[in-house]
């Protein structure tokens, strides 16, 4: 499964995805509504988030590690705030709001399977074409990623010179071949879907 959640307690995992989503959005909205000088008060949410993570049975280290992936963008944009009047307060406000928001979102994603979230979107009347595209993406991305990895290994095994230009050319060609194979696979999948009665 895409982005498979860390081991969690079943009760938390089975709780309504829509409810968890709404709660997370509420937290993010509350944070975004805080004025700049009151933004550090957003840190009061941290104990609640940590408590929720403990109840859910999340491994804190792994949860924090995944949250840190957003750090480069968070820091680089926050630093831009330093170049204006009262920049220190703005920098701190953006840092606090985004850090707490990222932790809340990661908590949601680690306690809710992606398929549940996508089903929630379907129930929210997201266009069917978009929903089916996402479901097929979920189904086939790992196959194509494996194929891309195999092509990369085959290319590495056959390429004696490792110059950057040759690498770019070889990987670009590999992606082109992957796209051609993608279209062929799509034709086969469509035929299989039609054979099973899909429109």
């Amino acid at each position: 499964m895409l982005g498979s959640p860390l081991p969690v307690r079943r009760a938390v995992a089975r709780a309504s995805a829509a409810g968890k989503c709404a709660l997370t959005l509420g937290v993010i909205l509350a944070l975004s509504a805080l004025p700049v000088r009151h933004a550090p008060f957003g840190l009061v949410l941290l104990p609640a988030l940590f408590a929720a993570a403990r109840v859910a049975g999340l491994k804190l280290r792994a949860w924090l590690k995944r949250s840190l992936l957003a750090l480069p963008f968070v820091l680089s944009v926050s630093l831009l705030g330093l170049f204006q009047p009262d920049g220190g307060a703005l920098f701190l406000a953006v840092l606090v709001k985004s850090a707490v928001s990222v932790l809340a979102v990661q908590l949601l994603l680690q306690t809710t399977p992606a398929s549940d979230l996508l089903r929630t979107l379907r129930r929210a009347h997201v266009p069917e074409i978009l929903c089916s595209t996402m479901l097929l993406l979920q189904r086939y991305w790992s196959l194509l990623a494996d194929e891309a990895a195999r092509m990369r290994r085959a290319r590495a095994g056959r390429t004696l010179r490792a110059g950057r230009l040759e690498l770019w050319r070889a990987q670009g060609n590999a992606l082109g071949l992957l796209f051609v194979r993608t279209v062929s696979r799509a034709e086969r999948v469509q035929a299989a879907m039609r054979a099973r009665g899909a429109p």
């Binding site: 097929l136 991305w141 990623a145 279209v183 696979r185 999948v189 899909a198």
Partner: peptide, 12 residues
Amino acid sequence: RALLGVSAAFVF
């Protein structure tokens, strides 16, 4: 739909 879905998987 298969083309859209598999193309999305390709981009991914």
